[in-house]
């Protein structure tokens, strides 16, 4: 058993998993605050990557200008979606809202294809390029820096969530909407905030993913695996999203290498089925979710 190789593969998986975790947090944020299962999260991620592409490659802005602008763009998109489409659907059957997000995803993909065509593009580089070695184990620089950035963002988010007024308002709305209203929290504003923040985080994930493997309209498929991550972790648990993201990233990497690339997605979906059958509320989700 080549332990070094196994460690390398595991590290690569955890690196990829950090992106899953980041995107999953965006998803959980939306779910906790507005009770919407947003299947368009993959498409929002894609839009973020393309915004960076447009700003960085199309307008040739340097990355420290283009990235914040792309993030803001992603946030604006999130808020736009919430105000324009999700807010009117408030109170409707959650399955309808679910389908609306699928429709939104389709619109986003079509728009991106229209403007930038389906050809895959490379993003302008902004991460250091030398190989990283932990002990003797090799990690690709993109993966390593992606992990670091994702970890920093996640830590930042957790801090915000805990200590910032907006974060407290988010948590309050998430746990009991009625009480939040009663306490004078502007719940509609919290909704917009949640979607905007989630849009920014998704855009950030998109940029990191794009830096690793290029951008194309197919990036949106990432969203399906993120769906599995949040189910396994628990739809309303940030910690669950983190853990499940890393776990599934690791699992896909190991399966991909030891069983073969064809089995990567299969194993993920079998895990999903198992979790749904045995413990639908996930590792750390609240038990009542089943009563959807």
């Amino acid at each position: 058993m080549d332990w070094l190789f196994f460690i390398e593969v595991s590290l690569a998986g955890i690196g990829a998993g950090s992106l899953y975790a980041l995107t999953a947090i965006a998803f959980v944020l939306i779910y906790k605050a507005t009770r919407v299962i947003n299947l368009a999260i993959g498409e929002m991620l894609m839009v973020g990557a393309y915004l960076f592409f447009a700003l960085g490659a199309g307008w040739s802005l340097s990355w420290w200008l283009a990235i914040p602008m792309a993030l803001v763009g992603g946030g604006l998109l999130g808020m736009l979606l919430e105000r324009g489409v999700i807010r009117p659907m408030l109170g409707e059957n959650p399955i309808s809202v679910f389908m609306v997000t699928i429709g939104l995803g389709s619109i986003l993909v079509g728009t991106v294809e229209l403007i930038w065509t389906s050809a895959p593009r490379s993003l302008p580089g902004f991460m250091p390029d030398e190989a990283i070695f932990i002990g003797e184990a090799f990690i690709a620089p993109n993966t390593f820096w992606g992990f670091v950035i994702a970890a920093v963002v996640i830590a930042l988010f957790l801090l915000l969530f805990r200590f910032w007024r907006g974060g407290v308002a988010l948590r309050a709305t998430a746990s009991d909407q009625g009480a939040a209203w009663a306490m004078g929290i502007n719940v509609p504003a919290v909704y917009s905030l949640a979607w905007g923040l989630a849009g920014m985080i998704a855009a950030g994930s998109g940029i990191l993913l794009g830096a690793m493997s290029g951008v194309s309209p197919e990036m949106a498929m990432f969203g399906l695996t993120v769906l599995v991550v949040v189910i396994v972790g628990g739809l309303d648990s940030v910690f669950g999203a983190l853990l499940a993201g890393l776990l599934i990233g690791w699992m896909e990497s190991v399966v991909g290498v030891y069983l073969g690339g064809e089995y990567e997605h299969l194993v993920t979906f079998i895990l999903l089925m198992l979790v749904l059958l045995v413990r639908p509320w996930g590792l750390f989700g609240s038990h009542e979710i089943e009563r959807l």
Partner: peptide
């Protein structure tokens, strides 16, 4: 796998 997957493990 098809789609914009991370190829780190394949590269390993």
């Amino acid at each position: 796998p098809p789609g914009a997957a991370d190829i780190s493990s394949a590269a390993l």
